[in-house]
Amino acid sequence: MNINATFLGQMIAMAFFLWFCSKYVWPPFVAILEERKKKIADGLEAASRAQKDLELAQETSAEKLKEAKAEAAAVIDQANKRAVQIVDEAKEQAREEGQRIIAGANAEIDQEVNRAKEALRAQVSAIAIAGAEKILESSIDQAANEEMLNKLASEL
C-alpha cells in the first residue's frame, strides 16, 4: 500500500477530466436548465397576460353587446316611427286623391247638366215654334213670338 506513480496518474487524469467536464459536459446542462427555467417563467407570464386579455375582451364584448342592443332598439324605434309616418302620408295622399277625383266628377256632372240644359233649351224653342206653327197654320209675327218663346225657354 505504498504511494507510487498512480498518485500522479490520478492527478493528471483528474485535470484532464476537469477540463473536459468544464468544457463539454457542464455548460450544456446548465444552459438547458437555465433556458427551461426561462421558458417556464415566460409561459406563466404569457398565461397571466392572456387571462388579463381575456377579462378585458369579455368586458369589451359585453359593452359592445349593450351598445349594439341600444342601437338596434333605436333603429327599430325609428323604423316604427317612419312606418307610421309613411302610412299617415299615404292616407293623406289617398284622401286628397279621392277628394280630387270627387271634385273632378262633380265638375264633369255639372258640365254635362249644363250642356243638356243648353241642348234642351235650344230644342224646346224649336219644338214650341214648330208646334205653334202647326196649331196656327198661319204666319205670325215671328219676331214677336220668338221673343215670347225665348222668354219661355229661359224660364225652363
Partner: peptide
C-alpha cells in the same frame, strides 16, 4: 515510486471517462 497500480488506475480512468462520455 515509479510504478503504477494498473488495476485501480485502469478502473479509475475507465469509470471517469465512461461517465463523462455518457454525460456528453
Amino acid at each position: 515510486f515509479w510504478a503504477i497500480n494498473v488495476d485501480t488506475m485502469g478502473w479509475s480512468l475507465f469509470l471517469g471517462a465512461g461517465f463523462l462520455w455518457f454525460f456528453r
